[in-house]
């Protein structure tokens, strides 16, 4: 369960102050896939970085399973599986070693760890990549390895920043099925994307962020109804376009 409460954050760029978050609040509940939508520069990544404890909010709080991200960032990170917006691989390690590294950082060891790693490679259908060095991997293969390392320790909460960019259709489906499985098991999944069909198909609830504020919140259908549009994409454009947004 992820709770974001009245989050404020500004950055100083030279003499100007840029307000990245302006009182953003939302919840991502267990057993649900929550989509987070917003135009570029809306504050999604800043919000997620505050969630990981990398940035300190000026005001407000972020809680993950009851732990406050500002006070106990390590405890919060233990509850999370993170797929960040920017990621890289250790190119001199094999895919297995890379996932093994992150599993160990999450405290896994021995046989359990090996079983978990083998399982995640199998689940994401990437067993053939297992013992290859990651140097020269395609974008999709790199994404898969990063996903595997985010999911290997079966975290209670997933935070995935555009996890399907660069994936082929088959891999996207594999990921979707995988997320659905975790959702059924009661995990909390926070998911940001720019692909509207995907959000519409996958998410139970959608949060629309614009100008660092919550613009609208609801199921995809509710949002369409709210905006009076048939397609989520049109609804999204309409909702972020209105200055006041639709108070949710």
């Amino acid at each position: 369960m992820i709770e974001v409460n009245n989050l404020h954050k500004s950055f100083k760029v030279g003499k100007n102050t840029v307000k990245a978050l302006d009182g953003l609040s939302f919840q991502a509940k267990d057993g649900e896939i929550t989509g987070i939508l917003g135009p570029n520069g809306a504050g999604k990544t800043t919000c997620l970085r505050t969630l990981y404890g990398l940035l300190t909010a000026d005001e407000g709080s972020v809680k993950v399973d009851g732990f406050n991200a500002l006070e106990e960032p390590l405890a919060v990170r233990k509850q999370l599986g993170i797929f960040p917006d920017k990621f890289g691989l250790y190119e001199r390690l094999t895919a297995f070693e890379q996932v093994d590294y992150f599993a160990s950082i999450h405290g896994m060891q021995g046989k359990d760890k090996n079983v978990a790693i083998e399982q995640i490679f199998k689940d994401l259908e990437m067993e053939e990549l297992m013992h290859r060095k990651t140097l020269g991997f395609s974008q999709g293969q790199r994404m898969k390895v990063t996903l595997a390392q985010a999911l290997v320790h079966q975290p209670k909460n997933f935070v995935l920043d555009e996890p399907t960019r660069g994936l082929d259709v088959m891999s996207t489906r594999v990921l979707r099925n995988h997320l659905a499985k975790f959702k059924a098991k009661g995990h909390c999944i926070l998911f940001s994307s720019h692909v509207m069909q995907e959000v519409a198909a996958l998410c139970d609830r959608v949060i629309i962020v614009a100008n660092g504020k919550l613009a609208a919140e609801g199921t995809p259908q509710e949002l369409c109804d709210l905006a009076g549009e048939k397609l989520l994409e049109d609804a999204f454009v309409k909702l972020i376009g209105s200055d006041e947004g639709v108070a949710a």
């Binding site: 990981y52 990398l54 390590l74 405890a75 990170r77 233990k78 999370l80 993170i82 960040p84 920017k86 990621f87 890289g88 691989l89 250790y90 190119e91 992150f102 950082i105 999450h106 990063t146």
Partner: peptide, 15 residues
């Protein structure tokens, strides 16, 4: 590691 974007990943981990 910073340039290869792996540092951010590492800093997000519980370590």
């Amino acid at each position: 590691e910073r340039e290869r974007n792996v540092l951010e990943m590492l800093l997000c981990q519980p370590v």
